[in-house]
Design a protein around this nucleic acid. Sequence first.
DNA 1: CCTCGGTGTTGAACCGTTTCAACGTTGAGC
DNA 2: GCTCAACGTTGAAACGGTTCAACACCGAGG
Lengths: 337, 337
Amino acid sequence: MRPSVGIRDVARHAGVSNATVSNVLNRPDVVAPATRQRVLAVIEQLGFVRNESARQLRAGRSRVLAYVVLDAANPFFTDVARGVEDAAREAGFALFLCNSASDGGREREYLELLHEQRVEGILITPVDAESALLAERGTPVVLVDREASDGARCSVAVDDVLGGELAVTHLVENGHTRIAMIGGPLSIQQVRDRREGALRALTGAGLPADALTFLETRGLQVAEGRGAGERLAGLPASRRPTAAFCANDLLALGLLQSMTQQGLRVPDDLAVVGYDDIEFAAAAAVPLTSVRQPREELGRTAARLLLSENDADHEHRHVKFQPELVVRASTAVRRTT
Amino acid sequence: MRPSVGIRDVARHAGVSNATVSNVLNRPDVVAPATRQRVLAVIEQLGFVRNESARQLRAGRSRVLAYVVLDAANPFFTDVARGVEDAAREAGFALFLCNSASDGGREREYLELLHEQRVEGILITPVDAESALLAERGTPVVLVDREASDGARCSVAVDDVLGGELAVTHLVENGHTRIAMIGGPLSIQQVRDRREGALRALTGAGLPADALTFLETRGLQVAEGRGAGERLAGLPASRRPTAAFCANDLLALGLLQSMTQQGLRVPDDLAVVGYDDIEFAAAAAVPLTSVRQPREELGRTAARLLLSENDADHEHRHVKFQPELVVRASTAVRRTT
DNA sequence: CCTCGGTGTTGAACCGTTTCAACGTTGAGC
DNA sequence: GCTCAACGTTGAAACGGTTCAACACCGAGG
């Protein structure tokens, strides 16, 4: 079988021309039923598998979209990906997932490969701002969970400033005045935006900006959250923040774990707010208050935008969704005064 | 830019032949430095992007592997995928992730597409046994976390029977004699194997086989675990199992959640053992006892096996790893006698 | 009987690369 | 000065499909 069977072999065995075989594959209605059956039988018998490279080379179009995801291990992104895939399938496209794992180099390599593959379109949650500015290379690109700074492409995002504001406003209303924000690196737009929202909440409530201590992490994974937890627990209780706002749920879960390990109680010793409201947030040791984003809708919208990119009258749009606070036990009020 | 620039355009602008441009791209060392520089400059200037379809069509080889994953939302698989990707990158390959989402139809579509794309190799955790028997289509396939029934391809798996045995033996040693196993559908080989191990543990301990109640679920997601929890909680305490062995951690987490909601305590009212030991298991409401599998190594090994598939002396192998029990609070001993 | 429209089929060009035998040039060795 | 190997470059033939104008055939209508 290795000397792979091509369309010509099928044609010969079925006693028709290449063109007819191609028609059977692509426009079955145009070929006489009897011929069609015969060709299909031969295809089956010979185990013919169409060569997509050749097809795409000539036909010019591809049948796949790709989503270059920031961290495949973060359930937030797999939920977004599900939305993307739903919309893609609906339109007859397959989805390839690529994991940049927060690594700019990998991201570049994947983008390069995808451009070379001439996929129909690329969705990407970029590692940082610079990479988002990648030059136009002929394949449409839509930013997911990031806002495009220029008008050169579509983007679908959630209002992260508002999200940060919701989270910290909630903490302030619960009486906290020493709050830590945990997240990083600051090269990530979201982290900056959420911090900005946090600060806005403080000033809105008449608190000084230094009521917020920013603990920068090297990434947004569970392990980094644990690390931050150790740093917090190391502080004398008098100076320790009474609440923490984490830039995502993974950090919050890590933080939670390390709190328990160090013998500190949530929410009594430290109230915790996460971000994303992933499924595991509700199942955590202490169910997590979190800022919910419309994950699947984010993905669906992005995919639809991407697919509309070839319309004659396409205009680049920047969609922005609203986040929503989901309150759970991790921020239950401290004192019933 | 849409009238895409090809290798000929580059050649013309640089005053060389197509062949030389191709050489610059593929064998830079063979072309004179001056020429190389000039060509590279033109490539940059014209924004040329190599057409991978054409390249692959002619060259015959691809630079990508694909992993068709059973459930991208299950952290277990994303961890395996990380291992796959590490090994793939090491060998100079990119990895495309495809999510079958436990749907046989999707799985088939992806496989078809990947075969047509002529990727270098396919890794797959198949939906069920039948689909695992897919005919040889020219592209090497390795089964991940499944054992190949025939000798027609490589597979990398973990001893699920042993895993089930470890889990239930642990429960029996803790004094449980009414145990539920939660998992499904039974068309999934793993679920069957883990149940078999569970039964073996019982008989090994001299308990009757009906000490194990099997609760079949429709899938292995958190929501199914919650559902099973409601079924359990509905039973009168006298007949309710005192321990549950879940076919994976997602189910266990769902179960945990619903226990808390229904006012039952873990492990006092119900001890819980999960499977996979995903990162979230340790961060759960009650840290989860779980059966750990070497996730990343599973992926790495599978990828290496796949890449060795083209070696002249390749023989199909079936690698099997050993699982390991990780004990945590969810199975703390019930009574200190 | 001739014309005409419709239906099915086909030959050949084409997509954009890679590959390889063959070519011209150059410089070293004798 | 001649030979020869090494080097850099190139023309043209693939690769395996799709596409389209053109063709053969047939039955209906005038």
